[in-house]
Design a protein around this nucleic acid. Structure first.
Lengths: 243, 243
DNA sequence: CGCGGCATTGACTTCTGTCAAAAATAGTGG
DNA sequence: CCACTATTTTTGACAGAAGTCAATGCCGCG
């Protein structure tokens, strides 16, 4: 459960979210404007085409951004983890569905107030630009994965990128020690991210396990004995940036 | 051929590029800093992993942004048309290959000077943010297409989006009149954009032609008799935004 | 005219999707 | 705590969409 209005000083995403570059006096303004909201797993945070009254930073938990076509086909376009920003200044409606995967806490700002902050506070504007450019890179890497990788490569690169994003939490000492990885997503949600079916995801995970590239303690917890070997399996070339 | 330093006043992308929101005095500064450069069709504008000395706006022509994997598989992540911005402040290297498709003219700024402009000129910073957010939406739509659409839907939606982007130039009076569309890309380049092979692109275009959805005058020129019908074929739902 | 690149078409293969069932896991209530 | 159900995951058999390999056709150009 999120505190009503805990101080930004103690915020877990203080140095990585949209407020990262703010000076104390700027932070004080944000502190006045912000409000927290918590969503249960599976809850809808936003729906494609509907208006979005708040812009938010994801403080804790995990959410997906996706589009569902009329016939039920679904494609995820982003995995939202702590510090990620939700919504965009200048457009009132979300183009995608946003759904809580685990329990999610958002730090929210009213649209108008936030848009004024973006105009008046260069530290927020430039931080938001920088984050948006990073997201753009991620989205384009995603396009490479979706368009040209095999099912096996998609799974491997998904695991690699997830491991990198959780690195601070789970990675132990040396780069050669096994990496423990918790999957926040169901097989179905992984399939939606990679443009695959649930069956193909399951089969490829089994193959990776049989090849000794991963070990499954339970269906949501994976251990990667040799991270570099999995990176090779992910078909990464030297240009693939570590975002 | 691009003029050496033609006035920004007459620039074809004056009101749609990164400088769109600039006041006359801001434009005057840009005018001092800019330089034009022209690339022949097929020329390399940037290479993945290599440094990029300039940030640019594409003034005329067409270019692709793509990644080529070690084994030759290639995926395009963007089609660059007039007013599109190339490069990003805050990172000196390009993550993707950028290649001229037709003859391309760029309006270029030195990295350092442009980054200073972004810091000092809110009209540039906010315009760049807005453009980047739009590109992010495009990239995410692309992910939906690459991940979940059939070959036929990919081709149809590619044609629809190309027609929309060329709308100002080619679209005639009413929305029901046939739309003429020139393909700037070869079959191979289209395939690279859609995550398909050249043969599949060719076959699907033939099928669309046989179904009366398009007519091919020559292999690069397409006429769309009923645009709305092609939109349906593209599998667009009501939420698909017209970007 | 003949070469070379691009596009189209055909025959066949393969990877992933579909349909279906079994196994594992989680959740519920007695 | 344990049976029982519901959900998720895994596995299998088969089908189908797109890829691969190969040949042919089309154009522009020297």
């Amino acid at each position: 459960m999120a505190p009503r209005n805990e101080s930004c000083q103690n915020c877990p995403i203080r140095h990585s979210a949209v407020c990262a570059d703010c000076e104390p006096h700027e932070l004080a303004i944000l502190e006045q404007l912000k409000s927290y909201r918590t969503y249960a797993p599976g809850a809808t945070i936003a729906s494609a085409g509907e208006s979005l009254a708040h812009l938010s930073s994801l403080v804790s938990g995990c959410a997906t951004m996706s589009r569902t076509l009329e016939d039920g086909r679904r494609q995820a376009v982003g995995l939202l983890l702590p510090a990620d920003f939700i919504g965009r200044p200048g457009r009132a409606t979300s183009l995608f569905d946003i759904e809580a995967v685990s329990e999610v806490t958002l730090c929210r700002f009213e649209r108008m107030q936030f848009e004024r902050m973006v105009r008046d506070t260069p530290h927020i504007a430039t931080r938001l630009l920088s984050m948006t450019l990073d997201e753009l890179d991620v989205a384009r890497e995603m396009a490479v994965t979706l368009g040209r990788m095999t099912a096996r490569e998609k799974i491997a690169s998904f695991l690699v990128s997830l491991a990198r994003r959780q690195a601070t939490v789970t990675r132990h000492s040396g780069p050669k020690s096994p990496v423990a990885l918790h999957l926040p997503l169901s097989r179905q949600a992984i399939a939606d991210h990679l443009g695959l079916t649930i069956e193909t995801v399951s089969r490829q995970l089994t193959q990776l396990r049989k090849a000794g590239l991963i070990a499954l303690t339970d269906s949501r917890d994976i251990s990667i004995p040799d991270f570099e070997r999995l990176q090779v399996e992910a078909g990464e070339d030297d240009f693939t940036p570590v975002i």
